[in-house]
Design a protein around this nucleic acid. Structure first.
Lengths: 386, 386
DNA sequence: ATTCTTTTTGTGTGCGCGCACAATAGACGA
DNA sequence: TCGTCTATTGTGCGCGCACACAAAAAGAAT
């Protein structure tokens, strides 16, 4: 009675129907089980199992036959049952940066969301926080992580050299790695989830360019502690400059790093100096989420005719966006980066699904009027794995 | 040995570890099972089960005790096991519109994606396609659907009256409904997933306004068959007009319906006439995904000084966006609308989770430079339920 | 033909939960 | 005290799969 031939793949829906008051019978595709394959192929479930998982020890002839029956009947592994029976835990180690920074706080929110969603799949997330601008600490945490033998790793490799080293270590140990935030083309990881930095710089330029005069100076500003050798910053700058190359105007692109951005006075006097030097400064592009820090210490009136473009929907940025002091923000979707980073590892390791190697998140253009829709968390990225 | 007291909620991770070469022991939170609760509370699993599901037939004292133990130990239902054991099928009937229209094609793609993702949860999706501009057919299909006793319904209530009627029928039968695309404030449904139409009209206006002269005329154009009584169109127009009310300029907003949009000649001559009448026409806002239809039949040179804003990333629109004939598109995320519509019903019925009643999708501003990131399907909306 | 390997195939148990049904205790009247 | 009825509690099976182990069949060697 559990027997189902290929011709019986459809069964009467009413049987399983809860409110089976209806007499009308509706046919519904039924899920084919290992048992059904075994019966049809005239073997035991164990043999089918061996074929499915390529465990070997199956006569070639039998194997082929079973495979044929499987495709005929359209077998699909039941992920629910499979996961339940698999019954393994998975430890993921994540290496990100200190949560004082609202951007990294949001990344971590994504991680926590993912942890919650995957708890039932036996996923355990260990998150390590590195101080920004501290490659030594990064190196140390990386070593610690590798030595703790995690099943998978998620990392934001802000430091070029140390990041690469970490990835190589993981590769040697056979630990799959998901990269977020900063792409590392040279490294072979399971996947990268984040933005196309080059293109984000390009778009930033385009947004600055809206209504800009024929001749002007624009400033690309890195507010980063320590040396900015992160790949994504270099790419952003490339994209930014590229746009102005052939826009038909005559725009001078100035690019500057300012490391002591936490020192308001220093930042202020430095920027005022820039303003004095470049009288036609009409656009500022802050390459990370710290645009607000510049605005915090410089008076409104200096920005009268300057278009501001920044990154990320962090609290202070949003305020400036709403008060029209920032014109555009490009959303890097930190929450989704963290979330998808974990999800992809789980997809790979537990659900054994293919994952795309490069997953560029959209470059959301955020203005005052559509800002709320990106910040409100009312859209339920499914709270549970589908 | 299965016994776990509250103090033993942490156990040694290495036990379950696959590559258990390590000697270091890592503590990991363990998932509490019904069995653990039962043991701790000194009752049987059946009793715990009755408490969890509020099935009654439990002495008040015992019930309270079990509940206390549950919160103490932090019990969380294992969705995997729960779903597997629940073993019910769920038939969802979806009522959307004919797939010839690329927009509705994308909605359906979302539905199919969701069907695939939820197959393991025993979800069966029945999709009904209504002809656009045909309320009679809508009514008929709605009746048919209600009579087939689905477990849940997903609908895009383009027709005000018929939509409301459908929703009332479902409410009477106790069938939960997810609404997409068109909000119906009066109806009480499980949830609405789509855009804030008012705000999308508002943003469209803002985008048109970029670099527009002080005095100009803009056209809001409905290309819809039949009477456009859909709520979302009305809301869009409200938002659109609202923006120009206090922008400090003097913009005349013209709004027109043109039903025979499929007739290229008619559309062309009609639009040329408009152009002749309003010499200062400098912006056109097409309120749905059919902006391309206008461009298809009107020569490029007529649009020299006209900013175009439309909706949706359908093929022809994208082409015009890339060739600079459409300046902005607002993405309504049709795929996600369909996908989340189904997912939310499943979340509600199978996973028995709370779902938010209004889920506004972001108002993505799409320009030539960020278009690809919205169309590429490389970001894996988790292929399986989380 | 017999024994011993090796290959191939079959069977049984458990994952955690939901639910039907069996079992027990308590209440009450005869 | 006993039976009966009801309120409460306990037990067992199945969901579909993964995996360990038992069983059988097929070769290989004597």
């Amino acid at each position: 009675m559990c027997a189902r031939t290929i011709d019986e793949i459809f069964y009467i829906f009413a049987q399983n129907q809860r409110n089976a008051t209806q007499t009308e019978q509706i046919k519904v595709p039924v899920r084919v089980r290992i048992k059904d394959i075994a019966l049809k192929a005239g073997v035991s479930t164990g043999t089918v199992d061996r074929v499915i998982h390529n465990r070997g020890n199956v006569a070639t002839k039998v194997k082929e036959h079973v495979e044929r029956v499987m495709t005929e009947m359209g077998y699909k592994r039941n992920l629910i049952a499979s996961t339940l029976a698999y019954n393994k835990t998975l430890r993921i180690a994540a290496l990100i940066f200190d949560q004082d920074d609202p951007y990294w706080f949001q990344i971590n929110q994504g991680l926590e969301k993912a942890q919650e969603a995957t708890l039932h799949y036996g996923v355990n997330l260990d998150t390590f926080f590195c101080d920004q601008g501290n490659p030594v600490m990064f190196q140390k945490l990386a070593t610690e992580i590798v030595e703790s033998h995690p099943d998978a790793v998620l990392v934001a490799p802000l430091f070029l050299k140390e990041g690469l080293h970490f990835l190589q270590l993981c590769a040697k140990k056979g630990i799959p790695v998901a990269i977020i935030n900063t792409q590392m083309p040279k490294a072979k990881a399971l996947c990268y989830i984040g933005q196309d930095s080059y293109q984000s710089g390009f778009i930033a330029a385009r947004l600055l360019n809206f209504g800009m005069k024929k001749k002007a100076t624009v400033l690309l500003l890195n507010l980063d502690p320590g040396p900015t050798n992160a790949q994504h910053l270099l790419d952003k700058e490339r994209g930014f400059r590229e746009y102005f190359k052939d826009d038909g105007k005559s725009i001078t692109v100035l690019s500057e790093n300012f490391e002591q951005y936490r020192d308001q006075k220093a930042l202020k006097s430095w920027f005022i100096k820039i303003l004095g030097k470049y009288k036609d400064l009409s656009g500022v592009f802050v390459t990370n989420s710290r645009a607000y820090m510049l605005l915090d210490c410089i008076d409104k009136r200096y920005f009268q005719d300057i278009v501001m473009v920044g990154f990320d929907l962090v609290g202070p940025n949003i305020e400036y966006l709403k008060s029209n002091r920032i014109n555009f923000l490009i959303n890097q979707n930190p929450v989704l980066q963290g979330y998808l980073g974990v999800i992809n590892l789980v997809n790979h390791l537990i659900l054994r699904q293919e994952v795309a190697q490069i997953q560029y998140l959209p470059l959301d253009i955020v203005v005052r009027e559509n800002c709320d829709y990106y910040t409100r968390a009312n859209v339920s990225y499914p709270a549970t794995i589908f």
